[in-house]
């Protein structure tokens, strides 16, 4: 049980987690697990684990960084579980072939989302994070319409029915969202 006191002291807002971070965490997980259902479960587990260890949150990292660290561990655990299922044959690889690594275990081999390595995959991932962050800054309805249309590829008609708006409303919202996104991404990606 998490007391209100703890929440206030360390500035965690679990009731906002889904809106703020679910897509971001989900992208991170999908990129590493490539199984959407499983990725979704890991995100949910991450939120639960976050609640459970909220008292350990010292406010040193942002809420997002803190959650991604938890998810990272979940992803590692997932691969460990698969590996142990594969049988008892233990494969030992010398991870520390490069001298600058401190330990010799798997954790440090997981891609760091904040790394600036000039690598295509990582760059696309950074791009994804940047877009996701910018979408997060949009007014909620614009973000929803843009996401449905652009990322989930839902037809205009279905979105209009779903949200009870007319097509010209939809296009105005899409247009505003796109304009804000261009501004938001401007610094690094345009």
């Amino acid at each position: 049980m998490i007391t209100e006191h703890i929440m206030k002291t360390h500035q965690l807002y679990p009731e906002k987690w889904v809106d703020l971070y679910a897509d971001y965490l989900f992208n991170y997980a999908v990129a590493r697990i490539s199984d959407a259902d499983l990725a979704k479960d890991l995100v949910q587990e991450t939120f639960f684990a976050g609640l459970k260890s909220a008292k350990n949150y010292k406010g040193e990292a942002t809420e997002r960084t803190w959650l991604i660290a938890i998810l990272k561990r979940k992803v590692i655990d997932h691969y460990r579980k698969i590996n142990s299922k594969k049988g008892k044959a233990e494969v030992r690889i010398n991870y520390s072939s490069s001298s600058d690594s401190e330990g010799d275990w798997l954790e440090e081999q997981v891609a760091d989302p904040f790394s600036t390595l000039e690598n295509g995959v990582l760059e696309n991932e950074e791009l994804g994070i940047a877009i996701q962050e910018c979408i997060g800054k949009l007014p909620k309805k614009q973000a929803l319409v843009f996401t449905m249309k652009t990322i989930q590829n839902i037809s205009t008609e279905d979105i209009c029915n779903d949200l009870e708006i007319n097509p010209s409303n939809l296009w105005v919202m899409i247009h505003r969202a796109r304009t804000s996104l261009m501004d938001c991404l401007n610094k690094n990606w345009f």
Partner: peptide
């Protein structure tokens, strides 16, 4: 350019229904 960026990033999102479910799960744990 924005369109091509969105395509390149291969974004994934959860559906609204999935998010609502997650929110409720979290609420019940708080």
């Amino acid at each position: 350019h924005l369109s091509s960026l969105c395509e390149k990033a291969k974004l994934h999102t959860l559906t609204e229904a999935e998010k609502v479910e997650m929110k409720e799960n979290i609420k019940s744990e708080i």
